[in-house]
Design a protein around this nucleic acid. Structure first.
Length: 426
DNA sequence: TCTGGGGTCCTAGGACCC
DNA sequence: TCTGGGGTCCTAGGACCC
């Protein structure tokens, strides 16, 4: 059999993070909202039981929240990111080979533990719980896809008590007969519909599908998926984070933007933030895309969506370069009167592509007369690092920030900001 | 009437993930 | 009034080459 892989996945991660720092949240319904307090992206079991759906818009839940006293939080990514790091640190103590798959999931290579495999997984859960306060579930199987499925079963079926081992043939058949195809990692709405149309409803049925048929329905991706369901590993554990290919900063506007000025200010802020991210990773970008669009959830209103892409020559991580390029794109994409063109834009962003490690970037044959001075960006980052984000910004960002997003229910940055440390009364 | 064959590279768009 | 943000991979099709 292939080497066993474990997937350790934090339960309702964002909610669990909030609970670590406020024990009064235990046992009560809690939800965490997306950016701009838009929709629910994490729910406690109690909130799920009340029918709160993943991705449900906050404004439509007002009644339920009121009626059941659901505790609501804006997302606090600084806190979640830091807690995630602590969880991963703990997991790293259990196996030398692991892959951080997302903020709340890690694949762990369990080969070599033999009989002790299950005990090891159990210890790992225990240790994460003790050191971070975060509850987890573990799924074990021969492939990543099966490990994801095992984790799903561990979460859903209390019989497994948090650990589901699909390397056991009987358990594997039992689970695959009962998991709907839509719950399988890699089967989204489109593939689910295609499969259902052919009468394939359960994971075990998909596993039995001939490989050529799978490829016909869903290209090589579905073919690999079927192989993985059969226990043939097609997706390896990636211990080192691969060089990232693109980077985006996009935001909904707190209040819709109706003038080119407002849009420019928002895009300036997004482009600066993108440049900051690039520099923190030691990268430069080769192309930049700026886009903006109206509210797609309101088709009865006038709709407009536009985007433009331009090359950055030389490749750059300089805030001035990126802001300039983004605004050039926006100006080309804007239509009509600059003060008021009849559209209300609710979302804008910049996307960077062709990312390269800064000192490997190609040099220009004919460099610009007045090249950007890297020391300026160094100073900018140093000031903002020391005195807080946005202490120093480019003037093109404006000062009103009318587009800025909402976050009315944010919890304190308990672990990353001294002034937010909890106080203990003795 | 008859109009080659075989490549590469790039981009846009779809599908999926958390 | 109010519906997130940030990624990856794959394919088809066009442009271009000899």
């Amino acid at each position: 059999m292939a080497d066993p892989i474990a997937l350790i996945d934090c339960n309702n991660f964002y909610v669990s993070c909030e609970r670590v720092f406020d024990p009064r949240l235990a046992g009560v319904p809690v939800i965490v909202l997306s950016n701009n307090d838009g929709c629910a992206i994490a729910r406690s079991e109690e909130a799920k039981a009340l029918g709160i759906k993943m991705g449900a818009p906050a404004f439509k839940m007002r009644d339920v929240i009121e009626r059941h006293g659901i505790r609501v939080f804006s997302s606090n990514y600084t806190l979640y990111g830091d807690m995630s790091r602590r969880v991963v640190d703990t997991i790293g103590g259990f196996s030398p080979r692991f892959e951080v798959y997302s903020i709340d999931e890690t694949f762990v290579d369990l080969s070599g533990f033999g009989e002790r495999m299950i005990a090891q997984a159990s210890d790992m859960r225990q240790e994460v719980r003790e050191r971070t306060g975060i509850p987890t579930c573990v799924g074990i199987a021969a492939t990543k896809t099966l490990a994801k499925l095992a984790n799903f079963a561990a979460k859903k079926n209390p019989l497994f008590a948090g650990i589901c081992n699909l390397t056991d043939d009987a358990i594997r058949d039992y689970v695959l007969d009962r998991v709907p195809i839509g719950e399988i990692w890699g089967v989204g709405a489109a593939t689910e519909a295609k499969l259902q149309a052919q009468g394939i409803l359960w994971a075990s049925q998909l596993r039995a599908m001939p490989l050529p048929h799978a490829r016909k329905i869903g290209t090589v991706v579905l073919e690999r998926l079927v192989a993985e369901l059969r226990g043939v590993p097609c997706i390896g554990i990636e211990e080192v984070e691969p060089q990232r290919k693109g980077m985006a900063v996009t935001r909904s506007a707190g209040t819709p933007m109706t003038s080119f000025d407002e849009l420019s200010q928002a895009l300036s802020a997004h482009a600066s933030r993108a440049a900051e991210k690039l520099r923190s990773h030691g990268l430069v970008a080769g192309t930049i895309t700026a886009f903006f669009h109206t509210n797609r959830h309101k088709p009865e209103r006038p709709q407009h969506s536009a985007s433009r892409t331009t090359r950055l020559t030389p490749m750059s991580a300089d805030s001035f370069d990126l802001v300039e390029a983004a605004l050039r794109c926006a100006a080309r994409a804007w239509k009509g009167d600059r003060d008021h063109n009849g559209y209300a834009y609710t979302k804008a962003g910049v996307i960077l592509d062709d990312l390269v490690v800064a000192d490997k970037a190609p040099r220009l044959l004919f460099p610009p007369d007045r090249p950007r001075d890297a020391r300026l960006m160094g100073a900018l980052d140093a000031v903002n690092d020391r005195f807080g984000k946005k202490t120093l910004v480019l003037a093109s960002e404006g000062y009103k920030r009318s587009w800025a997003l909402r976050a009315d229910h944010r919890s304190p940055r308990y672990t990353t900001r001294l002034s937010d440390l909890p106080t203990v009364n003795i």
